[in-house]
Structures are given as structure tokens and as C-alpha cells.
């Protein structure tokens, strides 16, 4: 089984009236990896995940998930996948154990369920909260419970829709440790996020913008293949530098980070540092250095191109 793609999407499209939420998405997700969906809000991440879970019908195109055509009956598939919704969707007025018990029955875990519930509680360190109502738990605890529930029936494939968007950084880090553990166990995880640090941790990444797949590959590969160069300019007057640079057609983007500016120049310039130097006549700056692009730069570039003003 290893090596076989878990998800193959071809021209997967979903429209809501005029809006094209997912636009001809082509995707191959390999097994046993953490695959990230990176994109701004409204880029179609959730819609794509819902289609892949069988909750939404594609308007066009198709996808195969664990060998099952998602346009057909997905009843059997539901036993093999786990889904963690963007919004907390367990029962707030049920305790941790009651929630787990309910879903154990729903997944028909049978005799082994009590044991499995104990396992999950321990694994996701929920022993203290065992008999606490889900509504009264912290954001991080709730996410752990949601993950424990989504993986209760030992799914081969987990869909996580922005699992950490309402969680503090410490809990996020911890959450990702759980994800890596599960990936090591052979579970394939498809996780959507808008956090760069999380995207960086994925084995593979798809960047979505306005429903379109704009980049796809490992984080390192995406950085290497980025069409633009990144120049860091230090200046006592970053605002002035920014205004000056944004006037040039070759400058794709200019992001201010304190007194530094990350300037993205399209690939056409042989020596981008010298080129920027030339652009900055009459503006005060202290240094111009070519730097390695970060994933954020990749993201800015990718989402700039399609939805941008040009």
C-alpha cells in the first residue's frame, strides 16, 4: 500500500451559484504523510476537504479517496476516514468520556471501545478532563478531544480543517506533535492552515488561492522553485523605500518587518540586489542583501499572481 496515493483529485470543482469555491483542483496526496492546504480565508480549503469527505458533491471533476469515487456512495469510506471540522463540533454539554463513548458507538467499535477510549484519553492527555463538560474546557483541550474523537476508529486518513486556528502557540506545538506521531503510525493527514509555521512542518503543501491550486510541492522545493527573488532592505525610512519600490513593475511585493523590508523582484533581473540598489536613488537605506525566500514569501508570491491586481 505504501507509495500508493491516498487521494487523487482531477479537475475537482465546486460552485455555489456564481462563486467558484474550488476551481479544477488537481491533487495527489501520498500515503503516510502530512499534506498541508495553505491558503487565505475563502480560498476553498474547507470546500475541498468537504468534497473529499463526501459531504459535498463536486459540481465538476472527480476525486478518489482511498480508492473510493467520492461521487458515489461514501458509506463504506466513512469508516476509514476521520474528520475534524473547523468549528468545534462535539457536544458541549457532554463530558469527554460521553463524547468519546457516543462516537465509539456511532463507529460501531463494539467490545473494544472502552479500551480504545481509555487509550485515546491517555494518548491525548485528557485524564484530568475525563468527566469535564466539553464546553468548559480550554481551546487546546477541546482540540485534543476533537482529534482524539476523529482518530478514535483508527482511520487511515484524517482530514483536519484549520484545527489550530483558535489555539495558543504552546497548544499548537503540542498538537503538531500528535500529528507527527500519527503520521509515523502510517496515518495520512490532510490539514488546512493559514499559519506559515504550520505549513512549514508539512511534508508536502498545496497553496490555494480563490479556489485555484497555485503551488504544490514540499516546502523546500516550493522555496527553491520560487520565480521571484527576495531582497532585504534595511532603512531608517522604510515607508519611503516602500513607496519608491512599489512604483516599479518588476517589484511584485514589498512587506515591512520593523525597519526591514522584504522586496520581491520577478526573476527577470540577473542581479536583483544591484537592481534594487538602482531603484532606490534618493532614498535613505543602510543595507541591501539578497536572502533565501521564506515560505511566507512563497505564499505571498503564489497568492499575488492569480488574485492580484495584474
Amino acid at each position: 500500500m505504501a507509495g500508493d496515493p491516498v487521494i487523487i483529485a482531477s479537475d475537482l470543482t465546486r460552485r455555489f451559484g456564481q462563486l467558484v469555491a474550488v476551481d479544477h483542483l488537481n491533487l495527489t496526496v501520498p500515503a503516510g504523510r502530512i499534506y498541508g492546504f495553505l491558503g487565505p480565508n475563502g480560498s476553498g480549503k474547507s470546500t475541498a476537504i468537504r468534497m473529499l469527505c463526501g459531504l459535498l458533491r463536486p459540481s465538476e471533476g472527480n476525486a478518489t479517496v482511498l480508492g473510493t469515487d467520492i461521487r458515489g456512495s461514501t458509506a463504506a469510506l466513512r469508516h476509514r476516514i476521520g474528520y475534524m471540522t473547523q468549528r468545534f463540533s462535539l457536544y458541549g454539554d457532554l463530558t469527554v468520556v460521553e463524547n468519546l463513548r457516543f462516537f465509539a458507538s456511532v463507529y460501531d467499535l463494539g467490545r473494544s471501545s472502552a479500551e480504545r477510549i481509555e487509550q485515546q484519553i491517555e494518548r491525548f492527555s485528557l485524564q484530568q478532563q475525563k468527566n469535564q463538560l466539553a464546553d468548559t474546557m480550554s481551546g487546546g483541550q477541546r482540540q485534543r478531544l476533537a482529534l482524539a474523537t476523529a482518530s478514535l476508529h483508527k482511520p487511515e486518513l484524517l482530514f483536519l480543517d484549520e484545527p489550530t486556528s483558535a489555539v495558543d502557540p504552546e497548544s499548537r506545538r503540542e498538537f503538531w506533535e500528535f500529528l507527527f506521531e500519527m503520521a509515523d503510525d502510517g496515518v495520512t493527514i490532510l490539514v488546512s492552515t493559514h499559519f506559515m509555521d504550520e505549513a512549514e512542518r508539512c511534508h508536502r503543501l498545496a497553496i490555494l488561492n480563490h479556489g485555484v491550486l497555485v503551488a504544490d510541492g514540499t516546502p523546500d522545493r516550493l522555496k527553491e522553485e520560487m520565480a521571484a527573488r527576495v531582497i532585504e532592505v534595511r532603512s531608517p525610512d522604510p515607508g519611503g523605500v516602500r513607496r519608491q519600490l512599489l512604483g516599479a513593475e518588476t517589484v511584485l511585493d514589498c512587506t515591512q518587518l520593523g525597519t526591514r523590508l522584504h522586496v520581491m523582484i520577478d526573476g527577470s533581473q540577473g542581479d536583483p540586489a544591484a537592481y534594487v540598489n538602482g531603484l532606490l536613488k534618493g532614498v535613505r537605506y543602510s543595507s541591501i542583501t539578497a536572502i533565501e525566500p521564506s515560505l511566507e514569501d512563497v505564499f505571498v508570491m503564489a497568492t499575488h499572481h492569480v488574485g492580484g491586481d495584474r
Partner: peptide, 14 residues
């Protein structure tokens, strides 16, 4: 309303 349904319909429940 409370968002439970999205998870529930993703399970094998009929």
C-alpha cells in the same frame, strides 16, 4: 445550529 451535524454526517451513522 451548534455545528454538530457536520461531524455527525461524516460518520457512518445512517
Amino acid at each position: 445550529d451548534q455545528g454538530n451535524l457536520e461531524l455527525l454526517i461524516a460518520t457512518p451513522i445512517q
